[in-house]
Amino acid sequence: APHGPELTYRQLNCDDPETEQVAQVAVDYINSHLLQGYKHTLNQIDKVKVWPRRPFGEIFELEIDTLETTCHVLDPTPVANCTVRQLVEHAVEGDCDFRVLKQDGQFSVTFAKCDSSPDSAEDVRKVCPDCPLLAPFNHSRVVHAVEAALAAFNAQSNGTYFQLVEVSRAQFVPLPVSTRVEFAVAATDCVAKEVTDPAKCNPLAEKQYGFCKATVTEKVGQEDVAVTCTLFQTQPVVPQPQPDGTDVVVPTSAPVDPAASVSPPASPPAASLVVGPMV
């Protein structure tokens, strides 16, 4: 490397519009690369340094805090329209380090590392002593609640059988004693009324995802299952360009960016279909 003046960074205000622009690029990157859980939104910019980059451009070194929203990553709703998960619901924060290259006015993420963690039980208790806390997904009560809710949903379905994609949230409610769960589902090639072995059902090539919220309440000798599912618009099978110029139709890949893979504006609006509640 040629001798020259040492590279020094430029200090930018964390609330500077340019910093906020870069932070938004970072948050969009997070949400388009999340494979499970909920979309995140920007809460605070912790640090920013701007390094000159040879031969051209600048590297923004950024530390940001995010908060979980109530929109599942499979939900095509833009994150700007999603509600932030409140403290009383047991909030989850993200702590992220980013490096973003700005060159010719264009931003590109060159490094990203995020950790997410739920608020502490003590902090939740401070603002709400009786609020339910997050529960582990592998707890027998959670597993049972999800199975019962999915079975109830499919039992009411006159069409497609939906299979579980992931459990995304679970809480134990003290009074009445109940288990609250949230989970994602996907349409399969099976008919709900005819399924004998769910393991033989396969997700459709034209993916249709849904998001369910359920409460399973324990009663003496029985239980009540209340489940509400929102089905999202199908994600079309898109043609993939091939090296020889032909297009081959393949299923859209795993839910990397559901918002980007919904139909173009000329199609009907991406309205979600709300199904339920069913008890």
């Binding site: 964390c14 609330d15 910093t19 809460n43 605070q44 910019i45 908060l67 403290l87």
Partner: peptide
Amino acid sequence: PVVQPGVAGAAGPVVPPCPGRIRYFKV
């Protein structure tokens, strides 16, 4: 007599550049 030099630019409170504003709440 010894005269103290004037202090320039000490008008308002200095806002630290970082961290930035909290948009929702601190966890």
